[in-house]
């Protein structure tokens, strides 16, 4: 772990942030990493305070208004014509979205 921006050791160091960036598919240039990692360390240091809250027996709350069973009938809607579907694609051939050749096997 890198040196802390403050006296207490940070939970998140420069290498950790680089690793997280890769997981998040975010390219960070060296200077960006230098700038951002101490900011993140400080924010993580701040949110650490939640550890002090006694939450024994408290159910997690993932929704602001908790409801169940919102389902729709199996009925078709209007679909997008292909030209509209592809219109925002950075690259397409009129039929497919195009991405650089992906080689992920053998």
């Amino acid at each position: 772990m890198d040196a802390a921006p403050k006296s207490d050791a940070p939970k998140v160091g420069r290498d950790d942030v680089a690793k997280i960036a890769r997981l998040a598919r975010l390219r960070l240039e060296e200077d960006e990493l230098d700038r951002i990692w101490p900011q993140l360390a400080k924010i993580v240091g701040y949110v650490e305070q939640l550890a002090e809250v006694d939450t024994d027996g408290v159910e997690p709350m993932a929704h602001a208004v908790e409801r169940t069973n919102v389902l729709r009938d199996d009925v078709p809607v209007e679909m997008l014509p292909r030209d509209k579907a592809l219109a925002n694609a950075p690259k397409n051939d009129g039929k497919y979205f195009l991405v650089p050749q992906i080689i992920d096997a053998e």
Binding site: V70, L71, R72, D74, E78, M79, L80, P81, K95, Y96
Partner: peptide, 22 residues
């Protein structure tokens, strides 16, 4: 290809999923 799609299928910004009962 790419004809059985709507904004939700394309994952366009702002689209939301709603579960199919069937």
């Amino acid at each position: 290809p790419n004809t059985h799609v709507d904004p939700v299928t394309l994952g366009l910004p702002g689209t939301l999923p709603v579960m199919n009962r069937k």
